[in-house]
Amino acid sequence: LQLMSGLGGRMRPVFNVTISNVPGPQETLYYEGAKLEAMYPVSLIAHGGALNITCLSYAGALNFGFTGCRDTLPSMQRLAVYTGEALDDLEKLILPPKAKPKKAKAGKTGKA
């Protein structure tokens, strides 16, 4: 609205964080036999914005892209590290624990 009205840059923005989700292809892509391992989003920040977080899904994975204003967020690396740690914690809470392989019992094997 600020851009359409011509007020962009003349007044404080209503928000300074944008979060979006972009659904990508669910099947694995190849280019001349080379497998595309991952896709990471890159986005823009509007005037007055501090952070843009974009999530992009690809082949069963979800990848995050962080774009930030250097003056407002001088340590973007910490945000990425903390997000990874939080997702690991969330995964531990949601997913069932991995089953441990069963040990073979000693004794008869049934072979003659």
Rank of each mutant, 00 (worst) to 15 (best):
Leu87Glu: 13
Arg70Tyr: 08
Pro101Met: 07
Ala106Ile: 06
Arg70Glu: 05
Gln77His: 09
Asp88Ser: 10
Leu79Thr: 05
Thr72His: 13
Leu95Asn: 06
Ser75Thr: 08
Ala86Lys: 10
Ala80Pro: 00
Val81Trp: 12
Gly84Ile: 06
Lys102Glu: 14
Ile94Arg: 04
Tyr82Met: 08
Tyr82Asn: 12
Val81Asn: 13
Gln77Ala: 09
Pro97Trp: 02
Leu79His: 08
Lys92Asn: 10
Gly84Pro: 02
Ala106Tyr: 01
Gly84Trp: 03
Val81Gly: 04
Lys102Pro: 09
Pro97Lys: 03
Arg78Asn: 07
Pro74Asn: 06
Tyr82Arg: 09
Ile94Ala: 03
Leu87Val: 12
Leu93Tyr: 03
Thr83Val: 09
Lys103His: 03
Thr83Cys: 13
Ala86Phe: 05
Ala80Met: 06
Lys103Ala: 13
Ile94Gly: 00
Asp89Arg: 15
Lys92Tyr: 08
Pro96His: 12
Pro101Val: 03
Asp88Lys: 01
Leu73Gly: 04
Ala99Ser: 10
Ala99Gln: 05
Lys98Glu: 07
Lys98Phe: 02
Met76Gly: 09
Asp71Ile: 13
Ile94Met: 02
Gly107Gln: 00
Val81Phe: 10
Arg70Val: 12
Ala86Thr: 11
Leu90Tyr: 03
Leu79Asn: 06
Pro96Glu: 09
Asp89Lys: 15
Arg70Thr: 12
Arg78Thr: 03
Glu85Thr: 06
Thr72Asp: 15
Lys92Arg: 12
Val81Gln: 15
Asp88Tyr: 01
Arg70Leu: 07
Leu73Gln: 02
Leu90Asp: 01
Arg78Glu: 01
Pro101Gln: 05
Gly107Ile: 07
Lys100Gly: 09
Arg78Tyr: 07
Ala80His: 00
Leu93Ala: 14
Pro101Gly: 08
Leu73Arg: 01
Glu85Ile: 02
Leu79Gly: 02
Ile94Leu: 09
Arg70Gly: 10
Asp89Leu: 15
Leu93Thr: 13
Arg78Phe: 06
Glu91Ala: 15
Leu73Asp: 00
Thr83Ala: 15
Leu79Asp: 02
Lys92Trp: 03
Leu73Val: 10
Pro96Ile: 07
Ser75Trp: 04
Pro101His: 07
Pro101Arg: 06
Gln77Glu: 14
Glu85Tyr: 05
Glu91Gln: 14
Ile94Ser: 02
Ser75Val: 05
Lys105Pro: 01
Pro101Tyr: 01
Lys98Val: 12
Glu85Lys: 11
Ile94Phe: 00
Asp88Trp: 00
Asp88Pro: 00
Leu90Asn: 01
Asp88Asn: 12
Leu93Arg: 14
Lys105Phe: 01
Met76Tyr: 02
Ala86His: 10
Glu85His: 08
Ser75Met: 10
Ala106Ser: 06
Lys98Asp: 02
Pro97Ala: 04
Leu93Gly: 10
Leu95Cys: 11
Leu93Pro: 00
Ser75Ile: 06
Gln77Leu: 08
Thr83Ser: 15
Pro96Ser: 08
Lys102Asp: 13
Leu87Ile: 14
Lys100Leu: 13
Ala80Gly: 05
Arg78Leu: 05
Leu73Thr: 03
Val81Met: 11
Arg70Lys: 09
Lys98Gln: 05
